[in-house]
Amino acid sequence: MIAQAVLNEWYPVAMAAQVGAWPGRQTQLLGSDIAVFLDAGEIVVQRADGSALAVCLRYGHVWACLGTPAHDLFPIPEADQPGRRLVDCGVVRVKCSPLRAVENFLDIAHFPFVHTDVLGAEPHTEVGRYEVQIREDSDEVWATKVHFYQPQAAKSASGGIVTEYMYRVAAPTAAVLYKTCPNKPDAWDVIGIFVQPLTEELCEVWPWMALFDDATPQADLIQFQQMIFLQDRSILENQIPRLLPLDPGKEIPTQADMTSIAYRRWLKRKGLTYGAQMVAA
């Protein structure tokens, strides 16, 4: 039995440009079999019984809702900003809870150990105090004033810099980060992950980027992001349990995990428990 709050959210189910005619993309959403296909020029998402789901197209992706959408899909204003390159980075299937995939995206402290010499490097491991809030107006989790030393912050970076980050949980399985842009100090690079929950322990993840970078070839940008995410996957598929524990006590956070703590609290408060473990086992 899946909570109504979970069913009423939007989830990514395909890349819009890649949707073809029936049978299209045969996949799963929250454990239900669905098909994403083109019918008379329109993208349709339907269940195995033929009933159609609510659909919206945004950020190059197809988003679907199994219930009654509780609200519009979250905005990313930068997606429409002139001069930005939108880069979709393909899809990575990960055997983990969709919530663990999002939580890892919000985490800074792993950079020196998982993305060694790229997004972080010893001895620059300290995570300073940053600010976290659950914004009541937009109903989003935000972390701001996050600073971290990075040997190669982006494909376009040519040396170590202290990068500033902002993190934003915009939907239960979608998050966006804003980070110092190596080419344009007054702007932010915007990177998202859109996570499709196939089941509670299996997801497909689309990294997504909106960058100020005219120089780097598309293939290099995609390769860079794929490398980062494959490093993350080696972690995500080896956490025990697969489900994200929402009750305190099962895992021990520290001050560096304030974003993760807020994300877990926000999920629990909203009843968004698909992919979560509620009782300490």
Binding site: N238, Q239, I240, E251, I252
Partner: peptide, 12 residues
């Protein structure tokens, strides 16, 4: 085989 922090396998 589990780090108490975030459950990662210590054997890795």
């Amino acid at each position: 085989d589990r780090c108490p922090h975030r459950g990662m396998r210590l054997s890795h």
